[in-house]
């Protein structure tokens, strides 16, 4: 009995730990997955909306952040808050492209909104300067981004494109493709394929958003890339990373006085053949690398470049 006790004790501790952890996992995992999905969805929309929002591009209608379910003018005029939603911005763009708002935001932001609406109606544009405050600008941008519509297209390795229908991705031969996370399955078998989100703004096809997943120094770097059909990058967003703090992790660093990560911002507006590092790369490009983090910088740059190349190969003829 004496010889068994240590083994037993270790087993008991391991079993208890396992039970505790799986209980915690059951509680937390749905929340974490949901948050990740929401974060990705918001990022996808925000990437497509240009930094300077031209109101003539935006169809008249009612937009809100977060989604308040208000569809038309009557809904806007009778709106008096929604249960459970404390902070919101509701925008109604009328047929003359005049902007009306209803909002509930922290006091120090409210004064900016009133001023911003006046300025927006004068210049017909929404920009960070016109809004005067970054958070307010972000609120406007988030609300406007609800106007972006996505059509999901699954592209298989051989170039076959399958548009998503109500029942999911159904191929020509009636095969059903199931997308789970970043993997695509057909009849239970994994097949190579990638989902592209084709973005429509005001009924016009403006860009595509897709995910690339380069491997950095110590972690995967899932990154959303938005590109127009002529191959110009609109923007990228690194969704998660666990690179070395102080070095590679600076790929998401926001400098003092700025609002967006400087490394990722460099990609905006570049063409495929410009997406190289300025130094130590196959070709001189336009991306300044993160000091002492060549591997991370190169991984992201290469991942984005190859993603855009593949996207152009698949969709280039349509553009």
């Amino acid at each position: 009995m004496k010889g068994i006790w240590p083994i037993l004790a270790l087993t008991i501790v391991a079993v208890i730990s396992g039970a505790v952890l799986s209980w915690i996992w059951d509680k937390t995992n749905p929340i974490i997955t949901r948050m990740d999905r929401e974060k990705e969805e918001i990022a996808r929309r925000m990437l497509v909306v240009p930094e300077d929002i031209d109101l003539s591009m935006i169809p008249s209608g009612v937009y809100s952040w977060p989604n308040l379910g208000v569809k038309d003018r009557n809904g806007f005029e009778s709106f008096k808050g929604k249960e459970g939603v404390q902070e919101y911005l509701l925008i109604w763009i009328d047929d003359l492209k005049k902007v009306h708002v209803k909002y509930n935001v922290p006091k120090d932001k409210a004064k900016f909104i009133e001023k911003a609406v006046e300025a927006i109606n004068k210049s017909m544009k929404i920009t960070p300067q016109i809004c005067g405050d970054w958070d307010v600008y972000q609120l406007f941008k988030k609300a406007i981004s609800s106007t972006v519509n996505f059509k999901k297209v699954l592209v298989l390795a051989d170039g076959t494109k399958i548009e998503a229908s109500k029942d999911g991705f159904i191929g020509k031969d009636g095969q059903k493709y199931v997308v789970k996370g970043d993997k695509v399955f057909c009849n239970g078998k994994e097949v190579k394929g990638k989902v592209y989100y084709i973005a429509y703004l005001g009924g016009k096809r403006v860009a595509a958003v897709f995910k690339v997943e380069p491997v950095g120094y110590s972690s995967k770097l899932p990154t959303l890339v938005a590109a127009t059909f002529d191959g110009t990058v609109l923007g990228i967003k690194i969704l998660s990373q666990s690179e070395t703090p102080g070095l590679g992790a600076r790929c998401v660093e926001i400098k003092e006085g700025e609002h967006e990560p400087w490394f990722q911002k460099q990609f905006s507006g570049l063409k495929v053949d410009e997406i190289y590092l300025t130094e130590k790369d196959e070709k001189p490009g336009k991306i300044h690398q993160i000091t002492a983090s060549t591997i991370t910088s190169r991984a992201v740059t290469k991942g984005v470049r190859e993603g855009v190349q593949e996207f152009l190969k698949m969709f280039g003829k349509e553009g």
Binding site: P6, I7, A9, L10, V13, S17, W25, N29
Partner: peptide, 28 residues
Amino acid sequence: VPKQVRIPIFIVVIATFVTAVDLTMHAY
């Protein structure tokens, strides 16, 4: 805790704790 297996048991306790803190923090 039996003397012979105290280190593995401590490690299991610590690892459990760290994972629990990590998950809880991530979710809430």
